[in-house]
């Protein structure tokens, strides 16, 4: 066990080094996309933790991301706290929101929970228009500042975003991985497998579910703050219902129980608009088609995945290998 942990830490460090060299080799657009991928990795892994492990559905993670983003921006603007503290505040604020939502969620199951979180995803961002502190439709500026001079003069802003996001992604993946293989992760899996059996073996179902929601929301809040860092502003329109949906899509594409697969979903989500653009240009279609093609592709992909690779590509591959092995025996 100890050996495995050292291996994991080494893997994460290696991942960091690879990212370091990669970010030096590609152009600005790719660096920016890299930052987006890192943000999506974090957001998707929060869904994987919640849905894949604790068995709860949330269509409202876009709203929780908004909570984190607004908390970070307000802390930055009103209290001038240092940037790293802003991210911590984002996690905390979203986690509190998640705990409240989780307390309601623990009483609900399946479709009821999905619908409640759906209503939240639609309702919450519009609430920002009610308070002048939150800047209304225009939103707030969220500026993490220029990269430190010590990194060199040609170190661009996007590269700085990418670094922050990638570091946050690596750290949160590591934290989630450890949570999932801890007592809590096992508890959640037990509940997902059979709620009654879990209860009979002494698990406090409501408390574990709320805990899962809280942790997942905190991670989503971090992703929200990072997302608004890359955009530069926090506004209701940055967190539409479509965001919540695409996170779920990303999680399903990754394999709802495969934390390591979060990368797959994130890359696909970032790549789809570009692919759609290329396709639209090739067939030379009107603007109507071009703007809606990404949405169509994401949705179609979602349906196809759920029908034909329901547990994700990684899990599917593993299952196929296992089947071959038993056949050989």
């Amino acid at each position: 066990m100890h050996k495995k942990q050292t291996r994991d830490i080494l893997l994460f460090i290696l991942g960091g080094v690879v990212l370091y060299f990669l970010s030096g080799m590609v152009d600005e657009l790719r660096v920016y996309q890299g930052a987006s991928i890192a943000v999506y990795v974090i957001a998707i892994s929060s869904i994987i933790l919640l849905t894949g492990y604790s068995g709860q559905v949330s269509l409202g993670h876009g709203a929780l991301m908004a909570v984190g983003a607004y908390a970070a921006a307000v802390a930055r603007i009103e209290l001038h706290v240092p940037i790293i503290l802003c991210f911590a505040i984002a996690v905390l604020a979203a986690a509190i929101g998640g705990a409240l939502l989780g307390a309601a969620a623990a009483r609900l199951s399946g479709p009821y929970l999905a619908g409640t979180t759906l209503a939240l995803a639609i309702g919450l961002p519009s609430l920002a228009n009610q308070f002048s502190l939150l800047g209304g439709e225009q939103g707030l500026l969220f500026d993490v500042g220029f990269p430190p001079l010590s990194l060199g003069a040609d170190f661009t802003q996007y590269k700085w975003f990418f670094w922050i996001a990638a570091l946050a992604a690596l750290i949160s993946m590591w934290v989630i991985k450890n949570i999932l293989s801890s007592r809590y992760g096992r508890t959640w899996r037990a509940i997902r497998g059979n709620e009654v059996a879990a209860q009979l073996s002494g698990i406090n179902i409501a408390r574990s579910k709320i805990l899962a929601f809280t942790i997942s929301a905190g991670i989503a809040g971090l992703a929200g703050a990072l997302l608004s860092m890359t955009i530069g502003t926090v506004s209701p329109s940055a967190f539409p219902l479509a965001l919540s949906f695409s996170l779920l899509t990303g999680a399903v594409l990754s394999g709802i129980t495969t934390l390591g697969g979060a990368m797959i979903g994130a890359v696909v989500l970032v790549a789809i608009p570009e692919v759609a653009d290329a396709v639209a240009n090739r067939i030379g279609s009107s603007e109507r088609v071009t703007t809606n093609l990404p949405g169509l592709l994401v949705s179609a992909l979602l349906i196809l995945t759920v029908l034909f690779v329901p547990n994700g590509p990684v899990e599917q591959h593993r299952a196929r290998k296992a089947r071959k092995l038993t056949l050989k025996k």
Partner: peptide, 26 residues
């Protein structure tokens, strides 16, 4: 079956919603 079973209908119908919206807008 599997961990996806509980959420599969939700996800599939959401996907359908997306397909219909995008197609209608096109």
């Amino acid at each position: 079956t599997g961990p996806i079973a509980g959420v599969a209908p939700i996800i599939a119908t959401l996907g359908l919603l997306g397909v219909i919206r995008a197609t209608a807008a096109m």
